[in-house]
């Protein structure tokens, strides 16, 4: 099941890479310069790092039947907090810690609305999505705050053989995979996602788990926000992380995790995020204006939906969904 789910995003990724190779034969070339690795593939990974990180948090949120629309706004707030703090004190470390602290609070807020007040996630996080950029603008007073701090610059543009942003995202991926699959967290998240009430009655701390995933998602967005603003050494409250929530959700969906919650695939999300980023790069490579990338993204969504349809559509119209069969058999 999981295998076949991962097959299509993997094929799409390979196809895109091959297309790039045909258009640009030097596409796979990597070169080492001053101990730093460069090349188109590295660029894809680096540019995709924030999306991957946010998609990671999004995967867990979606697994609990939720969705977090506010991630882009949270990323913008993180950048705004860091840059305004650095601009006034010059202390990058405290600035970043402060920004991540703010993100945790924002995640707690989302989690509170969803887990405690029981508001539909899409709406609960819409509140912060709407208001969040306003808050970021408030922090930067509507300006683009530029900073020049070498430490801060490392997060988004630094190298440690590979770009540091890649390392952060991959480390987060591995950590999440270990934590969710080597402990019972993954199963409990899925259990809450499939049937929250049954989980509550079984003694699962649904609230805590839901709360945790929203805080984690906000934290991921915060780090992604740091990467984004570090990369350009500036906080742009208006456009930092704009539409990144859509890319992240797309990555999760392409990766085969259903928006209805339950079973999720981190590998799928990785493939999804890479596919989206490769697509963007491909569009550059073949010389189409970057704005038109959106058309291709739409194409990918539609293709993914069509590919899933032969399995999904008859399953829903003809009733061989496990639960429905059971229902039918039970009478």
């Amino acid at each position: 099941m999981t295998r076949t789910r991962l097959l299509w995003p993997a094929l799409a990724l390979v196809a895109l890479l091959l297309l790039n190779l045909i258009v640009e034969p030097s596409f796979f070339e990597l070169r080492l310069q001053d101990g730093h690795l460069f090349g188109s593939l590295v660029d894809i990974l680096r540019n995709g790092a924030p999306t991957l990180l946010i998609a990671l948090g999004m995967t867990l949120v979606i697994a609990t039947r939720g969705i977090d629309l506010s991630v882009g706004a949270v990323a913008a707030i993180a950048g705004a907090v860091t840059c305004t703090y650095i601009a006034s004190t010059g202390d990058a470390l405290t600035a970043m810690a402060l920004a991540l602290g703010v993100c945790v609070v924002l995640g707690l807020w989302n989690g509170f609305l969803v887990a405690v007040l029981g508001i539909q996630p899409i709406i609960a996080t819409l509140v912060l999505m709407t208001a969040g950029r306003g808050i970021a603008m408030l922090l930067t007073e509507g300006q683009i705050v530029t900073v020049d701090n070498p430490l801060f610059r490392q997060v988004g543009a630094g190298f440690l053989f590979l770009p540091i942003a890649i390392l952060i995202s991959l480390a987060a991926l591995v950590a999440v995979a270990l934590v969710t699959r080597r402990t019972a967290l993954g199963m409990l998240i899925e259990s809450v996602g499939v049937n929250p009430e049954a989980s509550r009655l079984a003694g699962v701390r649904s609230r805590t788990i839901i709360w945790t995933v929203y805080v984690f998602a906000a934290l991921c967005s915060g780090v992604a926000g740091l990467m984004i603003s570090s990369n350009v050494s500036a906080a742009d409250a208006n456009s930092a992380g704009l539409w990144i929530e859509m890319d992240a959700i797309l990555a999760v969906v392409i990766g085969g995790t259903l928006l209805t919650g339950g079973r999720y695939s981190l590998t799928g999300t990785l493939l999804g995020a890479l596919t989206i980023q490769t697509l963007t790069t491909t569009v550059y490579t073949i010389g189409v204006p970057p704005e038109v990338t959106l058309v291709f993204k739409a194409g990918v969504v539609i293709i993914v939906c069509l590919l899933q349809a032969p399995r999904v559509a008859p399953a829903l119209t003809r009733a061989p969904q496990p639960r429905q069969v059971e229902e039918a058999m039970a009478r």
């Binding site: 969705i67 899409i122 859509m246 959700i249 797309l250 969906v253 928006l259 209805t260 204006p289 704005e291 038109v292 990338t293 959106l294 058309v295 291709f296 993204k297 739409a298 194409g299 969504v301 539609i302 939906c305 069509l306 899933q308 349809a309 999904v312 559509a313 829903l316």
Partner: peptide, 27 residues
């Protein structure tokens, strides 16, 4: 039709529509 025939969630189907429409503007 995507939502009804292919059972795509409205969120995703209209997200695709959003990308498509925005992209077509720039086309």
């Amino acid at each position: 039709l995507m939502i009804h025939k292919l059972r795509v969630q409205p969120f995703i189907a209209t997200l695709a529509g959003m990308f498509l429409a925005r992209g077509l503007c720039f086309v």
